[in-house]
């Protein structure tokens, strides 16, 4: 499945690096704890979180994540957008909660 396949189902608004929508997605990791994501997420997963600060870009890059989905309609700030664009990271925003975004994605991937 590609990131693009999630856009409609999760009502995603794509905030940065649209080319990344062609990335293959193998699963998801839901967490708001940076060290947890660094330690436990796997390459190719999409990260579902409410964290919007600058360090999410670095964490996603280190871990080789397919993209980041911000929940609850959260929006990245300008500095985050710029860094994500330059590091080719796709950040999206969904109005859904973490539970529901994970739930819907789980059904799609099943």
């Amino acid at each position: 499945m590609k990131l693009n396949d999630l856009v409609e189902e999760l009502s995603l608004e794509v905030k940065t690096f649209k080319d990344g929508l062609e990335n293959e997605v193998t699963g998801a990791y839901v967490s708001d704890l940076l060290s947890d994501v660094m330690g436990n997420s796997k390459k190719g997963e999409v990260w579902i979180t409410l964290q919007t600060h600058l360090n999410i870009v670095a964490v996603a890059g280190h871990t080789g994540l397919a993209g980041v989905i911000l929940i609850g309609g959260k929006q990245p700030q300008e500095a985050v957008i710029q860094k994500a664009e330059s590091e080719k990271l796709t950040i999206m925003s969904t109005p859904l909660s973490a539970f529901e975004a994970a739930g819907k994605m789980y059904q799609l991937l099943k």
């Binding site: 998801a28 539970f99 529901e100 059904q107």
Partner: peptide
């Protein structure tokens, strides 16, 4: 389960999300 799988399984079984975001 991880948070993704736990949420996924419960959502699929019909448990709704708490109100709000």
């Amino acid at each position: 389960n991880c948070m993704y799988t736990a949420s996924g399984k419960l959502f699929q079984s019909g448990l709704p999300s708490c109100l709000g975001k």
